[in-house]
Design a protein around this nucleic acid. Structure first.
Lengths: 349, 349
DNA sequence: TAACCTTGCACTATCGATTGTGCAAAGCAA
DNA sequence: TTGCTTTGCACAATCGATAGTGCAAGGTTA
């Protein structure tokens, strides 16, 4: 015997003398409404267990056109935010009796589409689309399949979305930086005038642009003005960021006294440069990071961080999934709901 | 119309005037061997595209009892090692034309089993079992289903396994620590005699025990002896580790001059304590961490780290999957293959 | 022209479950 | 005993694809 042949309800029907439909009902829990005698059910169940029977979920899924699966599509795993997101997703999905499966797509739009199609073709019952490069393309696929789905972290225009409140996060972070009192400094807003910078990210990215807006708002309010030069957002690449940091520190007149770094990746670049500065310069510097990493707490200087409320995002996403109606055919005039979740400020101990 | 009805090959058959089997062949690539005219095929394909046809993969899977899915079961996502593992898995699976799906199980043995069963019932074509609490239980399920699978990171006795060479990693790390020259110290092996400690982890854990063995070996070779007190392995909890570190430093006679911390989680605990020590003590301390985190490079003291070769693990796992035969019925006397992959040493710049 | 081969496709069973329906036997009231 | 309701289950259709087989039309060879 080469391939193992699995037991089916037909085998069990033979063994128990019942019909396949009775076996099916006995095993999937519908036996009560199908008026199967309890003793029959128990007999079938015991034989099923003894035979090591497992329901073929593809067959069930085919018949019911449901699968019991909840899918999550993300760009990647090895990033703290997305890893936590997957983690929370898993917990919440299981809590709802679903089997959570996660697929990452490398920020490749085509891969995203293909993956979405695959998951849809497997009849996942719901789809979470996190940080997609083109959420609306996926929404169209889902709509054609009548599949409930939510965008997470990056909003789309064709499906409800749950996103972090980047603006509020940036406001809180910037305020905290203005309020910080670095070692030995009696910090007044005056000190940061023109000397607080936003570093990293891409201005046209949805999240970054909202953060920059929040940053600008606070800086303008507390310094009276926010110059264009105070925003340096030309990417996440650590080396680039390191170079840019270096440039900022070149002119002693305008050298940063506060530095808000956008994302931990960019932060790594910032760090590798800050390490080369004299300790006293670094110690009087106020550093903020829009992102969270536990080890950042143990650097040689304090850093204010913003940590996204991942559990909150996922909870709201599940909420939306059940509360929002499926978009009607084509005449959906109302823009889908967007929920913003507040991130948390993590201040140094 | 409430639910969207998806187009099937039967619909396409109607539209094109061909039979369902012809449509099927035209769309799944077998048309050549089924001698379908190319013009017919093209016509069918064009209509299919225009109708937005998607193969129902549950139906195909049911018929073929294959799914095109490759499954990965891991304990969790929010851990650098597992996150990287998932990442590499994804890349390698796609390279092989499979759709990679990942499920985490919270280190819960029952969840592991249930998840494995679910994936099997969906006819995944192969299963990667990473860091399972009970790999053999999963192997038994897979064997019953005739499913190819590999253990990763934690070996099992019923299926081929790919694991990190913890012993070699620990040896390399410990050697590196003996060879390190902390600031201002002309470091001789003598200095570390009885003053190098292994901190964190659980001695009965497979990985930890191998690491401890490697550590002991090097310490014995270079110091002539390794005392039991030099191994402090009672868990990963950061607070516990912090307390234990504190105790170690209490006696100035035996206070650590070198500290090998097992895992980044434990390392967080170590850090929170080291932060409270006078800088000069910390600076003359040699610190090693059996695990990798990019931010550890930027702490106020250098740390030697060990980084697992995640790509290597996954590559070898795929290799094993195709090279190793399925275990024969029950009379498999030969123990399945175990492949060890060397981790890399990451030394401070 | 007969015998045979090739081409091009249709027919039909099948994968393993779920579900609407039908029907005999048992139970019960009149 | 008759007629009606329950109980307990079997039958058969169905989900959407794949794959074995058969067969007519058109070509080729003798």
């Amino acid at each position: 015997m080469d391939t193992v042949k699995k037991t089916t309800i037909y085998d069990l029907a033979q063994l128990t003398g019942a019909s396949p439909s009775t076996v099916s009902a006995a095993l999937n829990g519908t036996w009560r409404q199908r008026r199967i005698k309890e003793s029959t059910v128990r007999q079938i169940q015991s034989i099923a267990a003894q035979q090591g029977y497992r329901t073929n979920l593809q067959a069930r899924g085919l018949r019911q056109s449901r699968s019991g699966l909840a899918g999550l599509i993300m760009p990647m795993y090895d990033n703290r935010f997305f890893a936590s997101l997957a983690q929370s997703f898993e917990v919440e999905a299981r809590r709802r009796g679903l089997c959570p499966i996660t697929v990452s797509t490398h920020r490749d739009p085509e891969e995203e589409q293909r993956t979405a199609e695959t998951l849809i073709s497997y009849a996942v019952d719901s789809l979470f689309v996190a940080g997609a490069t083109d959420p609306d393309a996926i929404s169209r696929l889902c709509r054609d399949a009548g599949l409930r789905h939510v965008n997470v972290d990056l909003p789309g225009s064709l499906a409800p979305s749950v996103i972090s409140d980047n603006h509020a996060g940036a406001v809180a972070l910037t305020e905290a930086m203005f309020d910080a009192r670095p070692k030995g400094e009696d910090h007044a807003d005056e000190r940061l005038k023109g000397r607080i910078y936003f570093l990293g990210g891409r201005e046209k990215d949805f999240a970054t642009s909202e953060r920059i807006a929040g940053f600008r708002e606070v800086v303008t309010r507390r310094s009276g003005h926010c110059a264009e030069e105070q925003i340096v957002a030309t990417g996440y690449n650590p080396e680039t960021v390191a170079r840019q940091a270096q440039v900022l520190f070149q002119n002693p007149e305008t050298a940063p006294r506060a530095l808000l770094v956008n994302s931990t990746i960019a932060f790594e670049g910032g760090l590798s440069f800050l390490g080369s500065l004299p300790p006293e310069t670094v110690e009087s510097l106020v550093v903020g990071c829009y992102d969270y990493d536990p080890f950042v707490r143990y650097l040689r200087f304090p850093v204010v961080m913003v940590r996204q409320d991942v559990e909150g995002l996922i909870r709201e996403a599940f909420q939306l999934l059940t509360s929002e109606p499926l978009p009607t055919d084509s005449t959906d005039s109302a823009a889908p709901k967007i929920i913003k979740v507040n991130p948390a400020l993590v201040t140094p101990a």
